[in-house]
């Protein structure tokens, strides 16, 4: 049975690799600066649409951590994102007008760029509203982490998505381009995460946080997945299976210890809940390009536009990675 299952998974991986090749046909290189990539550079891979206000802070955040090159797919932005990105010396930009949904919510495009340029590099696959926090990120660059992971024989690194939100109605504190989004969205849910283990792909499926608590308390099973494996020492054999939640081969999903110990892990601070989300929800509803009929965006429109406060008495205010580690949201493992 297990041999059969392995063959099935392998063929699934190959199909996924073929699929990304097909979907990559719609990508047009706008600026390709990948010849600047050096052997040991850490790369970031991003898909976006209309994110101009977020880009300046996003790029600076990851540059400061030590990302040397950004591989970006722009999916039909009309707000100047393309113009903004093509000016940056460390960005290679592809554009496409094709359907985000038909490209596996963008993951096919990313799989292709990772396959083409990522092999042999540590690559960080994130969205523009996701900010990686890892152990010692205030004193050690990302290179220190990837060197260490490599010395431990690890190929992937988990960082669960932590939804951050402001106190008070979401529209009350507008976001300025270049601003640290966590000056506004400073709060998070510390201890209401629910984990199921996926028996086939061996990844953990994490749900919970503010989206489950405040936006969909009656349908908890529909709450979005928060498990992410954004940092991978890429090889051409690898593919992201669905978003960055899981990979194939499935050994890459074993980012957790099952005998009681802790492996090192980080957190992706999620700056989704800023004032822009109200307009975005409106737009995405009409486009219908998101997961499960954009039901998540429907829920946002119903709750957030009405001025619902996501904050509660037991919300925690973000301080630093050490706080997240004490709360048990991430771990140093034995990276001392």
């Amino acid at each position: 049975m297990s041999v059969l299952r392995q063959l099935r998974l392998r063929s699934e991986r190959h199909r996924k690799l073929l699929r990304k090749l097909r979907k990559s046909l719609s990508l047009r290189a706008r600026v390709n600066r990948t010849d600047r990539i050096r052997t040991r550079d850490i790369l970031a891979c991003v898909t976006l649409r209309n994110e101009a206000p977020r880009l300046p802070y996003f790029l600076d955040y990851y540059r400061a951590q030590g990302v040397q090159h950004f591989l970006v797919v722009d999916n039909g932005s009309e707000d100047g994102s393309v113009e903004l990105l093509e000016k940056e010396r460390d960005v290679s930009l592809w554009v496409t007008q094709a359907s985000y949904k038909a490209a596996g919510f963008g993951i096919d495009w990313q799989n292709h760029l990772l396959w083409r340029y990522g092999a042999g590099h540590w690559v960080l696959t994130v969205d523009v509203d996701e900010f990686l926090v890892y152990p010692f990120c205030d004193s050690r660059p990302l290179h220190a982490l990837t060197d260490w992971l490599e010395s431990q024989g690890r190929r992937s690194f988990a960082a669960m998505l932590l939804d951050m939100y402001p106190k008070g109605p979401i529209g009350a504190q507008p976001y300025r381009p270049g601003q640290d989004p966590f000056e506004i969205a400073r709060w998070f849910d510390a201890g209401n995460y629910i984990i199921h283990r996926n028996p086939l792909y061996h990844n953990l499926w994490i749900q919970g946080g503010v989206r489950q608590r405040a936006i969909m308390p009656e349908t908890p099973g529909e709450a979005p997945a928060l498990n992410k494996i954004p940092l991978v020492h890429w090889s051409r054999k690898y593919v992201y299976k669905s978003s960055t939640h899981m990979l194939l081969p499935r050994g890459l999903n074993k980012v957790y210890d099952e005998s009681g110990g802790e492996l090192a892990s980080g957190v992706l601070l999620h700056a989704k809940f800023l004032d822009m989300i109200v307009d975005k929800a409106e737009e995405e509803m009409t486009r219908g390009q998101h997961y499960a009929g954009s039901r998540e965006y429907r829920a946002y429109r119903e709750t957030l536009a009405g001025g619902q406060d996501l904050w509660c008495d037991w919300s925690s205010e973000y301080i630093n990675w050490r706080q997240l580690e004490i709360l048990g949201l991430m771990s140093k493992g034995d990276w001392a």
């Binding site: 988990a158 984990i195 980012v255 110990g261 492996l263 892990s265 048990g328 949201l329 991430m330």
Partner: peptide, 11 residues
């Protein structure tokens, strides 16, 4: 690990 903690890298 920390007893009683169930999280992304300890399960």
């Amino acid at each position: 690990g920390r007893a009683g903690l169930y999280m992304q890298s300890r399960f």
